[in-house]
Design a protein around this nucleic acid. Structure first.
Lengths: 352, 352
DNA sequence: TTTCTAATTTTACATGGGTCAACTTTCTGA
DNA sequence: TCAGAAAGTTGACCCATGTAAAATTAGAAA
């Protein structure tokens, strides 16, 4: 008793608290209750909670993550897998997702496939052995190992975003048909109907965008013209630049309005136009109009600033996380796969 | 015996192997030896190894990560902490570091502070409770909670890169004095001596670069002129654009040659110049020369392409990892803190 | 073969909490 | 003031693997 009293008055701050057992002792609470507290601070009585929290300030104890997860039926881990973290679209969206997970008391952990199938597989395997309570994944798409992704999604509650492979309990992404339609409309109304500039598709979005372009052009009574340049990998800007230089030199662009499959390709093409001395924009004296898709973080800093159609990053991140939480809370996956598509918004800047 | 024989001939592939115990049984090896195998496949006899590996093919068992780390003195985890993962410099360097760690049989795990002190602290705390065998961290710098970083580095073998706060067993980064000197030399030799464009420094690099600029200018007998614009956060391009627009409007740039503290600021400034109708470059008819620092992945796609000085991403990544491995192997940290600085190389493009 | 050594097996205990059941204490509200 | 409910305590067992010591065995050299 007097010992306890003494401890409260002059805590031995030097003493290191390593285990929950020890921490329970110094805070005067039993270990199971302390365990309960760390699982959910609201599940214990207020007085108990404050006792624990004041002890926490003095001893800065943190439960051992491995021991915690070892035996829990559901961990607090949420896996996030993206195809390419150096792409600012994914960097941004991951940032938002991470924050939302942390706020909800989960522990997000990020993996990037770095554009490679084998690394995507590794990431999924590693993640799976972490026994996450759920996962948010943006698959590589075309180069994904479909079986691996499928198998993963069967084991862990999964929301797929960005790239819609038919896997997992839900998908959240952009409505490419709407957004491309919007842009094609705009470009046709304000100048020459656009051609479509793309590289070999890396994922379903790329395919959908091309199809959406064709469809929109036909709807408006124009002849679609798709230019598919060569190139692979994730260095889209380089492909846009190099192939753009070639096309301009050869004068083989079928229209002076060019709709690019994505902003990064457009950024490369803008650079090509600049280097070839072609003025880009919608004003008089401009030789080319260039538009993109995504509203990448950089696209407002290009020369000229890029006209594009925005993907709603925030909405995609929030809705994805929301659906994952529903999935986690609901227990069983919903009867049929849900798909949420967000509309894009036209972002008019100087390039088209 | 006959049972074992039977198993070898017709393995029950359907049967799920969940624990090492079960796996040891089906592979005909004792559990401790299997454990040893997973710790280091070369530590067991060749015949044993092949037995395990053939069993592995049939049952695809993976040891439970949590249980593995729970009891190991040294985990295989290597923590990577960066200030801002949406910055392509860090995205790239993380990519390289991750790969090197994986190849060496470690398990890299990435955290981003997203530019915020509290998140950096969280990341360090979380990482620490993962008991990593080592860590590679690029601190926020000015907004880092120095004590947290210090305390972290005392507990886990740490190599600091990019931003040199005086913590950890080693530092790997760029020699800002060399690289800025190089650029100032070049700019002075080929045109008007540059002014220096910066924002309030976020880390030691920013300070060193300004000082290096001053020193280089004085060495060459010119008057240094530093323009520090306002702005905070990590949206460097926006700051460069907005403040650039203002400076150009006010005609308050003291020189037509501008050396920016980093490429991202330069990219914003380039956009400002473009929007103000100022031609940037070193040729005739150009009103402004703009140079950056870092050779960011985007800087070759700006209009005009950005003259800059490269940081050797590969060298920094490799050397950091190498030093961490030495640190891990060596046991005790070296007597005195080691610092490795790489030289920058001039990257001449069209902007200056 | 014999012998020696390195590898493996056995056995047993450690790790740091999760979780459960049976009680006991504290709080609430009438 | 007192009953019932809510929360906390105790004690015990579980999880999946690490690790160490002692006993055994396989492989290689002599």
């Amino acid at each position: 008793m007097s010992d306890a009293q003494h401890d409260r008055d002059a805590p031995e701050t030097a003493r290191k608290v390593r285990t929950m057992e020890e921490f329970a002792e110094v805070s005067g609470i039993s270990r199971p209750t302390v365990s309960k507290y760390f699982h959910d601070p609201d599940s214990v009585r207020k007085t108990t909670r404050s006792k624990i929290e004041s002890a926490l300030e003095q001893y800065d104890y943190r439960p051992n993550i491995f021991a915690m997860n070892q035996n829990r039926k559901a961990t607090k881990t949420i896996g996030i897998v993206v195809p390419y973290l150096a792409d600012p679209f994914f960097a941004e969206i991951v940032r938002k997702i991470e924050r939302l997970c942390i706020e909800a008391g989960f522990w997000p952990i990020v993996f990037s496939a770095h554009g490679e199938r084998s690394l995507e597989n590794d990431a999924l395997a590693t993640l799976q052995s972490l026994r996450p309570i759920g996962a948010l994944i943006a698959p590589l798409g075309r180069s994904s190992d479909f079986e691996s992704v499928q198998q993963f999604a069967e084991e862990v509650p999964t929301v797929v975003f960005d790239s819609n492979v038919n896997v997992g309990a839900a998908f959240v992404g952009s409505d490419n048909f709407q957004s491309i339609g919007l842009m094609v409309d705009y470009l046709c109304r304000t100048g020459e109907p656009p051609c479509f500039f793309e590289m070999p598709p890396v994922n379903p979005n790329a395919n959908k965008r091309r199809d959406a372009y064709r469809q929109a052009m036909e709807r408006l009574g124009h002849q679609p013209q798709v230019i598919q340049v060569e190139g692979s990998g994730w260095e889209f800007e380089r492909i846009g630049l190099e192939e753009g230089m070639r096309l301009i030199s050869e004068r083989s662009l079928p229209s002076d309005s060019i709709l690019c499959s994505n902003d990064r390709l457009a950024i490369g093409l803008l650079a090509a136009a600049y280097q070839k001395g072609l003025r880009v924009g919608h004003g008089p004296g401009c030789a080319l109009r260039i538009a993109g898709h995504d509203d990448h973080p950089w696209s407002r800093f290009t020369c000229p600033p890029l006209t594009t159609v925005s993907q709603d990053y925030t909405a995609i991140a929030e809705r994805s996380v929301e659906m994952l939480f529903e999935l986690i809370a609901g227990g069983a996956p919903p009867a049929r796969r849900r798909e949420v598509l967000f509309d894009g918004k036209l972002v008019l800047r100087a390039s088209a």
